[in-house]
Design a protein around this nucleic acid. Structure first.
Lengths: 215, 215
DNA sequence: GTCTATAAACAGATAGAC
DNA sequence: GTCTATCTGTTTATAGAC
């Protein structure tokens, strides 16, 4: 591992390679991406992949780590919501959901991250383990605590955990099914305006679901 | 095109090739699947792929058509729900949603179909056009009519179309995110029992969403 | 560290025997 | 229709010059 404060030419090549790889692996998959195309987009040569990452597979692993780090940074560390009132919890859930919609639908960075993650999920790749443990699990736990507080149920009950997945599912589908959604909605693109309208519908669903599950 | 009533050895080879291809294309993607591996799993030789489908790409196209046909058969032709009462519409929506959950989560056939479709969606492949026009669009329209009837809103209003996507998103996420869901729920597998518990939560969400959006 | 040249393995397509 | 053998191009990885 290199000094993280070093910003030499080598680190720059590494960065460019990871950036190109994230994009191409996400778009075409591991096998369909050739080291030639990667080197070309990164503005370097084929041999540098082996030099910096050992192999094409090593570069892929580096991408997985980059994705995990990037998403962790955007979603932030999970916080402790003990002693949250039902109203506060519901409002917090809505805010977090709106942030998720905004990020997934409008952030340019989300494009490559989601494409990479989706492939990883379908292929049951090794990077999924890291991402699950360091990101998905703790975040889902945090949302479960809030959902439990909002509905008056046990945060780790089966119903609450499933309800949180259902909420997440609504959000991520608008990214995964984006081409289908755009076509059916007659939208040329999903920008901030469209994302806000999606978030409004989902927020209404969220409030209704909480109300319907409240004890 | 061959006689559909003919069940000779050639048709059998075709069937075995499509079956193997559906599985491997879905699992590893187009490029990562070699014609050698396909021929091996289908119990035939490489040359037969070119003979029966023209090329590897031709076999892929045949898979796309097979998927579209298979899903169309399971979801059935969209029906006309004009003059449906709000209560009837809501009940019908719930029944259709439960059927979707059951099929997606427990049917062995869904495994390969969904994997293939998911890749097709991510890669923006050509088969998506066929599947969108012949399947997704009409089905989404049918659900929109029911949602409109259940909530008293215009079936083609933006809010209704988005709400239908949100409902679908909840369901498909439990299939797409299946490895994540299993892990968080501590389930070894998602069988009929687990699918029923998922459907119960989603049905409650559905009723709550309809109630919350009702005019 | 960067790059060219090349080695060794693999891909898809096809010719031709049966 | 089926299958073997082979052609042609591309792949990743690497040796070695600079």
């Amino acid at each position: 591992m290199r000094e993280s404060l070093d910003h030499g030419a080598a680190d720059d090549t590494r960065r460019r390679l990871v950036s190109a790889a994230l994009k191409q692996f996400g778009r075409h998959g591991f096998t369909a991406t050739s080291t030639r195309a990667l080197a070309a987009e990164a503005g370097t040569n084929i041999a540098s992949i082996a030099y910096h990452f050992g192999s094409k597979a090593g570069l892929y692993r580096a991408c997985g780590e980059h994705v995990a780090a990037a998403i962790t940074e955007t979603v932030g560390a999970p916080r402790d919501h003990a002693g949250c009132s039902p109203a506060e919890a519901a409002e917090l859930l809505e805010r977090m959901m709106r942030a998720m919609v905004g990020f997934l639908c409008t952030s340019p960075a989300a494009d490559t991250l989601v494409a990479f993650l989706l492939r990883e999920m379908a292929e049951q790749g090794a990077a999924l383990d890291t991402i699950y443990g360091s990101l998905i699990e703790p975040k889902h736990r945090e949302l479960s605590v809030l959902w439990g507080a909002a509905t008056g149920r046990d945060a780790e009950s089966e119903a609450v955990r499933l309800a949180v997945f259902a909420m997440i599912g609504q959000v991520v589908y608008f990214r995964i099914g984006r081409p289908v959604v755009q076509r059916r909605m007659g939208w040329d693109d999903i920008g901030p305006a469209e994302a806000a309208r999606i978030a409004d519908i989902l927020a209404r669903n969220l409030r209704a679901a909480i109300k319907g599950q409240r004890l």
